[in-house]
């Protein structure tokens, strides 16, 4: 409850900060809309040549894209900036002040700033999903919507855990450009349905990122479930790996902080 109130305060403060730079705020929103437009044109082009790609037709794909946008929108709005800034806090030593505060370090460091300018992305995603679902003639039964949201939340938690592990590495690496490139790789893995990695030459990717570091599941499994394409193995794998990675990333985060403490001057 206290943490929820804090989250509201973080959101309030961030919005105030952001609004004091209005042009920057509007520009960022504009870029997001343009970026989505480019993606849509690209998919339109592909689906004008073929009615189905790896078992996904155009509107199913639109729904998938919406789910991806929603998930990424949440990650970028709540965490990405904080994670990017983490290594800067390590470098400047300002991390000290955060460690002194009497609240959970993981919560404070990953939620402290809300990036409002990427929030519209969440709504763009929700919009795409609605259009896709309506065109497919899927009815929004509460049961299906509820479990879809649960699975999407798992996918989101999984993405957050990956990001947290990458962020924690910042304690040792101090410069984190390469980390953010790894994160970019992850977002690209999440961006397409996992079935495109079906061919035998894609086996290494399918195994590594579908089972061990299961980035491929984050958006695919929830979207497959909603569209009635899912099998239970995917849902089980997503549930297990989400639990595991939430635990692992938290452990690793605190491990990195202990290292910071014994190494900082």
């Amino acid at each position: 409850m206290r943490y929820l109130r804090l989250l509201v305060s973080f959101a309030r403060i961030s919005l105030m900060g952001e609004l004091s730079f209005r042009v920057n705020f509007l520009l960022k929103i504009l870029v997001e809309v343009l970026w989505l437009g480019i993606l849509l044109i690209f998919y339109k082009t592909i689906f004008s040549k073929s009615s189905s790609v790896s078992g996904w037709d155009e509107y199913q794909y639109l729904f998938f894209l919406g789910a991806y946008y929603t998930l990424e929108g949440f990650v970028e709005t709540f965490f990405l900036e904080n994670c990017v800034e983490f290594s800067e806090l390590v470098r400047s030593g300002n991390l000290d002040f955060f460690l002194l505060k009497p609240i959970d370090e993981q919560f404070l460091l990953t939620f402290r700033k809300i990036d409002w300018s990427t929030a519209p992305k969440i709504f763009l995603g929700l919009g795409l999903m609605s259009i896709g679902a309506m065109d497919l003639g899927i009815t929004f039964e509460p049961f299906r919507v509820f479990w879809f949201l649960v699975l999407l939340f798992m996918g989101f938690s999984l993405a957050y855990s990956f990001l947290l592990v990458l962020t924690s590495l910042g304690v040792w690496l101090v410069r984190n450009q390469s980390l953010m490139e790894i994160w970019w790789l992850f977002t690209n893995l999440m961006r397409y349905p996992r079935s495109i990695y079906q061919p035998s030459w894609a086996l290494p990717i399918r195994v590594v990122f579908g089972v061990f570091i299961p980035a491929l599941l984050a958006v695919s499994v929830p979207a497959e479930y909603f569209l009635g394409k899912s099998d239970w193995s995917g849902i089980a794998l997503l549930s297990i790996s989400t639990g595991f990675f939430i635990w692992l990333s938290r452990w690793f985060f605190f491990y990195s902080l202990r290292h910071y403490q014994s190494a900082s001057s």
């Binding site: 000290d96 900082s264 001057s265």
Partner: peptide, 12 residues
């Protein structure tokens, strides 16, 4: 500063 940081728990 190192001493202060140890006293405040920032350094082991």
């Amino acid at each position: 500063t190192t001493t202060l940081k140890m006293l405040s728990g920032l350094v082991f």
